[in-house]
C-alpha cells in the first residue's frame, strides 16, 4: 500500500516536476530565474522535512545553506577539488553544523525557532569575520570564476531537487515518516509505542540540513561571485518557510505549490510593478494567512480532494 503510493507519487509528482525544471531552460532563457525556483523548491522541501514532519520551525535555515555555500567554495579554493567533489564538502559542512546544533532539538516551539535563527547569524558572523580572511576571505567575498558552469550547475541543482523530493516522498509513505508524524503529534505516546524519539528527530534534522547544504553549495557554484551576506541572508529562511507554509506542510505538493505560486507572484510583481512590490507581497501574505491558514492544500482537502 505504502509502496504503491510512493511509486504513484514518484511518477506523478517527482518526474513531472523534474522534467519541467530540467526542460524549461530550453524554452525560457532567464535560467537564473529558473535556478532560483529550483533553489527555493529545494529549500521549501527542506523546511517541509523538518517542520512538516517534526514540528520544529527552522527559522535560521539559511545557516545550513550558507555553510554549504562556503563548504563548497573553500573546497574549491583551498583543496582545488572539482565542483562535484566540492559538493561533498558542502554536504559535510552542513551535516557537521547540524551535529553541533543537535542539542537545539531539546527546545520547543518558538524557542527552537529563535535559537536556530541565532545560530545562523552566529555562523554568518564567524564566516565574515576579517580575522578569518585567510580561510574564508572574511568580508571580502568569494570569487569562483574558474569553475563557473551555469548549465552543469543548473543540472546538478535539479538533481538535488529530485533527491529532496524523493526524500519527502519516502517520508510521506514510510514507517519512518509515520513515526515522525507520531512524534510530532505526541512525543510521549510515540515513545511508549516504541519509537526512538531522539533518533527519528535527529535524522529528520540532519536530512533537512543536508538538503540545504547541498543546494547552498550549488548556489555558490552557480552564482560564483558573492559576499557572505548573500548566502547568509535571512530572507532565504523566511522565503522558504513562507512558501512551505503557504502550500501546506507534511505534504509533497504543498511546498511545490507554495514556491510556484508565491515565488511566481514575487517575480511577476517585481518585474511589472516594482514600486509597489513589497507592499503587494506583504499584503498578499497577510491575506493568505488570515483566510487560508493551513495552506492551499487545506482548501483542496475541504473540497474533498486528497492532496499528497
Amino acid at each position: 500500500m505504502l509502496r504503491t503510493k510512493a511509486l504513484r507519487h514518484t511518477l506523478f509528482i517527482l518526474l513531472p516536476v523534474i522534467a519541467v525544471a530540467g526542460l524549461l531552460p530550453l524554452a525560457y532563457s532567464n535560467q537564473l530565474l529558473l535556478f532560483n525556483f529550483v533553489v527555493f523548491l529545494t529549500l521549501a522541501q527542506g523546511v517541509n522535512i523538518l517542520y512538516g514532519f517534526t514540528g520544529y520551525l527552522p527559522f535560521g535555515y539559511v545557516g545550513f545553506f550558507g555553510v554549504g555555500a562556503y563548504g563548497f567554495s573553500l573546497a574549491v579554493m583551498h583543496l582545488h577539488l572539482p565542483p562535484l567533489a566540492a559538493l561533498g564538502a558542502a554536504a559535510l559542512a552542513a551535516v557537521l553544523l547540524g551535529l553541533v546544533l543537535t542539542p537545539l532539538l531539546r527546545l520547543s516551539g518558538a524557542y527552537f525557532a529563535i535559537a536556530n535563527l541565532a545560530a545562523s547569524q552566529a555562523m554568518f558572523q564567524v564566516v565574515s569575520n576579517p580575522n578569518l580572511t585567510d580561510i574564508t576571505k572574511g568580508p571580502y567575498g568569494i570569487s569562483l570564476a574558474g569553475v563557473f558552469a551555469p548549465n552543469l550547475s543548473y543540472g546538478v541543482a535539479v538533481a538535488i531537487l529530485a533527491l529532496t523530493l524523493g526524500t519527502v516522498i519516502y517520508l510521506r509513505n514510510s514507517r519512518f515518516g509515520l513515526a515522525l508524524l507520531a512524534v510530532r503529534e505526541d512525543s510521549v505516546t510515540a515513545a511508549m509505542a516504541g519509537i526512538d524519539v531522539v533518533r527519528t528527530r535527529t535524522l529528520a534534522w540532519q536530512l533537512s540540513a543536508l538538503v540545504a547544504g547541498l543546494i547552498g553549495g550549488v548556489f555558490a557554484w552557480y552564482v560564483s561571485v558573492f559576499y557572505p551576506e548573500t548566502v547568509f541572508s535571512p530572507e532565504f529562511s523566511i522565503f522558504a518557510i513562507v512558501f512551505a507554509l503557504f502550500g501546506g506542510v507534511a505534504t509533497i505538493t504543498g511546498p511545490i505549490l507554495g514556491v510556484v505560486v508565491l515565488y511566481g507572484i514575487y517575480n511577476a510583481i517585481g518585474i511589472s510593478t516594482p514600486q509597489y512590490f513589497q507592499l503587494i507581497y506583504g499584503a498578499l501574505i497577510m491575506g493568505l494567512v488570515l483566510f487560508l491558514p493551513n495552506g492551499v492544500v487545506s482548501l483542496f482537502r475541504r473540497w474533498g480532494i486528497d492532496v499528497p
Partner: peptide, 20 residues
C-alpha cells in the same frame, strides 16, 4: 527593476534584463 537590496533577487533581475 527594484531588487530591494536582495542579492538573490538582483541576480534574477540582471538576468531578466539580459535574456528577456
Amino acid at each position: 527593476y527594484d531588487d530591494q537590496s536582495n542579492t538573490a533577487t538582483a541576480a534574477t533581475l540582471y538576468n531578466q534584463l539580459i535574456t528577456q
